[in-house]
Amino acid sequence: MNRYAISAIYKFEMARTKRTIFQSIISPVISTSLYFVVFGSAIGSRITEIGGVSYGAFIVPGLIMLSLLTQSISNASFGIYFPKFTGTIYELLSAPISYYEVLIGYVGAAATKSILLSLIILATAGLFVPLEIAHPFWMLFFMVMTAITFSLFGFIIGIWADNFEKLQIIPMLVVTPLVFLGGTFYSVNMLPAFWQSVTLFNPVLYLISGFRWSFYEISDVSLTTSVTVILGFLALCMLTIWWIFKSGYQIKK
């Protein structure tokens, strides 16, 4: 294994975060804080509790998941797309490094950044609402697995995209709506029966539900289902990446 190469990619990506600290860390923290203020105050004054948890505390796992998903995708997709855009990908392609080592470097850095961000948001949330984490192991499990899986998904988007519009289209038009409609701000039990059934097709619901369970032991679906969905999506992303590497799709001529 070319550990120096993995380390070089990882450090390069982490250094980029340092250079763009406002965009990478401060901006998402401010956005999430605004969600607390707007949703926590506006809706929280009408919905005091869900499942015995204050509304402000209820939305914390969903908001963390929102950042975790979008930042994982954005970090990884941009990380691999930018060398393609600038042409510096020639160096990656001509280096004595396997595709999987490239993947570990980029996805590792993207996941690290989004996990750090999530932990910062978690700490920030603690300033607004009283927090409790019933199952810290499962909280970390969902956080890490989601970060890795969606960083892999972001890597796929970064490989697929051949312009900046494509880079943004999936996160903006697919992922963000799925997160909003996946129970970030509400429990699916509050929806009419028809929409409850529709929501069950939203994979993000399972992530938020499992993550929220690790905090408050309340969930919309069972823990097993949540774990199965995240592992299933991870397997799907790995399979897609395996095919990309095998075929050289959008990488090699």
Binding site: Y4, A5, E91
Partner: peptide, 18 residues
């Protein structure tokens, strides 16, 4: 990579090549 320093980009290449 326009935003990197000369030192960093050359060191990066050395690492990338193992």
């Amino acid at each position: 990579d326009s935003f990197e320093t000369v030192w960093d980009t050359v060191s990066f290449s050395r690492g990338l090549f193992g």
